[in-house]
Write a protein that binds this DNA or RNA. Structure first.
Lengths: 149, 149
DNA sequence: ACTTATCAGTTCTATATTAGAACTCACTAC
DNA sequence: GTAGTGAGTTCTAATATAGAACTGATAAGT
């Protein structure tokens, strides 16, 4: 299978990864969540090559995850912001953070944790079903394949 | 920056992606969640090349996400199962599915949704803080950098 | 005994992607 | 005029992936 075919796969995991599943894309999205909007700043912070960054920004814009806004004229300069579709990636980012803090501990004396903006206390993210409030686990939830053929 | 350096990055997003952030890995993990355990079956279902699959399985085993078990002798054959650390990736998978079903609609008449095992009704996954029950959004939660220097 | 099948890989070559550095273009500030 | 800013592009070398064939241990069929 070629990577380009993933975008039209019936499986949503494959379709998600066709947009954000390469080595750099979620790091670019992370920078956007941190409020970084400009090319040079992202490039320096990430250590990504300019070529690849330009390519990823194009892809993310095409996918509707980022919006490219001119913030000045003469010369025209653009910055990148998350769209609503991009902001909807927050649970993915939070889940990655939660998993990594458990599973891939930082080797140095530094860490990044998620805290409440109001109280400053660490949060412990869990997934629940909005309708019932039940936790979402492999035991409570399963994937259903709907073939409308 | 090189990819190999990500595993020791202070940012948990980078560390998570150093393990599961390449083009195929989360699809391999998805297969494991679907109960697929064997090399040939994964290879055929995913359309991944055998070379890359072998490499990803090695990497995931080294990261403690999968366990390699012999299921027969003469000749020895191995199968792969999720460890607890691997199962802890479920929220990431669920978040990806939820996002893709919203953001990257399937072009054909087929879909995959998450349903309750007990009632069969679709679930609507949301992240909350286990301690307070508050929803986790960009407005309620922020990242804190703790430098224990 | 010989052929085919199974199954987890390995090996090979062609192609695609990435890293790293230098360069472009349209300006602004000194 | 010279240097700086900032969003890219262009170039080459290194790396990773696609696709197909092959290996090695063994079982099953004829």
């Amino acid at each position: 299978m070629k990577w380009n075919d993933l975008g039209t796969d019936p499986c949503p995991v494959a379709r998600a990864l066709s947009v954000i599943g390469d080595r750099w894309t979620m790091l670019v999205v992370r920078e956007c969540f941190f409020g970084i909007r400009r090319f040079d700043q992202m490039q320096e912070r990430l250590g990504i090559t300019r070529h690849v960054l330009a390519d990823r920004l194009r892809t993310l814009e095409a996918a509707g995850v980022l919006r490219r806004d001119a913030y000045q004229e003469r010369p025209t300069r653009y910055e990148y912001r998350l769209t609503d579709r991009g902001k909807a990636l927050y649970p993915v980012l939070v889940s990655l953070i939660t998993w990594a803090n458990d599973a891939v501990p930082p080797p140095e004396q530094s860490s990044v944790t998620l805290v409440s903006r109001s109280t400053g206390t660490p949060v412990e993210p869990v997934l629940i079903d909005a309708a019932t409030g039940d936790p979402i686990t492999t035991r409570t939830v399963t994937a259903r394949f709907n073939d409308i053929s």
